[in-house]
């Protein structure tokens, strides 16, 4: 008995706290992934996010043709969150390939794509498959869940189970890259969508996008503030919804889940993992806590785990289900 106690104590002292992760075989220094749409326009911007502590980064979603996006204001602050309607502005697939070619950092690069239908998604995937070496990207994320762009995402029903399956299958047939299906907290059926996406070849589920659409009206002018009038809600206010979605999906699939939605602190990331996420997506925290958000969140995770004697993230993942 005494012997065992001593052994445990030695283990406590010797085994360092390890919060590194593997994303499809690539090492991440922590489980925090920059969510698509935040600072993902420029390679230099993503390099600086990685430098500032992100475990992996995601590009802004790209489409076949260039898109200017919605009129400004595109992002406004609201109580405990942000409301955004950027509208998938991007220079198009060729522009994005030339922008991100030669990603050199160790942090995995995830390329997010958006299409009007499964054919467009498949075309984009095929282009990425051809360029995956020069891009040095680790995975393709399917943006199925933007709530505020006509013809895309939620507004085109792409986050619905059948559509998610169809799009994932079409992309799977064009690429061997790991596929992350990014689902929506805004429409019912996210658990079924996750199951069908897995069946169609998804390698992971990113459970979370902005919630909505919502609206803010400026009462001095009597007009909606966002250029698109409505937009997706992100930030701490939506976290309970994201946590619940992750919790339900964790039981339903055998592939890893990225929990995205309102992760602002290390404690929030731990909550997401207890719900069943292997990784935590981080977006609006960059606004609330500045470019140093990732380091702060990582520090808080470490401190929390250290205080309670946790050594590995896997000891946290899904514990809320036990």
């Amino acid at each position: 008995m005494t012997f065992i106690m001593v052994e445990m104590e030695i283990q406590m002292v010797i085994m360092p706290l390890d919060i590194s992760r593997k994303l499809f075989g690539k090492r991440m220094k922590n489980p925090l992934i920059l969510a698509s749409g935040v600072l993902g326009v420029a390679k230099a911007g993503l390099e600086s996010v990685a430098e500032n502590g992100a475990g992996a980064v995601t590009t802004k979603s790209l489409s076949l043709e260039p898109r200017r996006g919605h009129e400004s204001p595109v992002i406004i602050e609201t109580e405990c969150g942000l409301l955004n309607a950027v509208g998938y502005s991007n220079p198009g697939i060729e522009g994005v390939i030339s922008e991100f070619t030669g990603w050199k950092r160790d942090e995995p690069l995830i390329v997010s794509i958006v299409g009007k239908d499964e054919k467009e998604f498949a075309q984009l995937a095929a282009r990425l498959e051809q360029n995956k070496k020069t891009l040095n990207c680790t995975a393709i994320e399917l943006a199925l869940s933007c709530p505020h762009t006509p013809g895309y995402g939620v507004m085109a029903g792409q986050a619905d189970p059948k559509a998610a399956e169809k799009i994932t299958r079409a992309v799977r047939s064009e690429t061997r890259l790991p596929i992350i299906a990014k689902l929506s907290p805004s429409v019912p059926g996210e658990v079924e969508a996750a199951k069908l996406a897995e069946r169609a070849g998804a390698s992971a589920i990113n459970m979370g996008n902005s919630l909505g659409p919502g609206m803010r009206i400026d009462i001095n002018r009597g007009r909606p503030v966002l250029g698109f009038r409505m937009g997706g809600m992100s930030g701490p206010a939506i976290r309970p919804i994201a946590v619940r979605c992750v919790y339900d999906i964790y039981d339903a699939v055998n592939i890893p889940v990225i929990g995205t939605g309102g992760v602002n602190t290390g404690q929030d990331a731990i909550e997401m993992m207890m719900a069943g996420a292997s990784f935590a997506g981080v977006g609006s925290a960059v606004y609330f806590r500045g470019p140093g958000a990732f380091r702060k969140i990582e520090g808080e995770m470490r401190a929390w785990m250290k205080e309670r004697g946790y050594k590995r993230l896997d000891d946290l993942v899904g514990v809320a289900h036990e």
């Binding site: 600086s48 950027v86 609006s284 470019p291």
Partner: peptide
């Protein structure tokens, strides 16, 4: 510049946000 909040990344200049940095 689009958001003015250092979030959207449109005004990136060598990894800095012109609107915030």
């Amino acid at each position: 510049m689009k958001c003015g909040l250092g979030v959207c990344g449109s005004c990136d200049l060598g990894g800095k946000s012109v609107c915030r940095d």
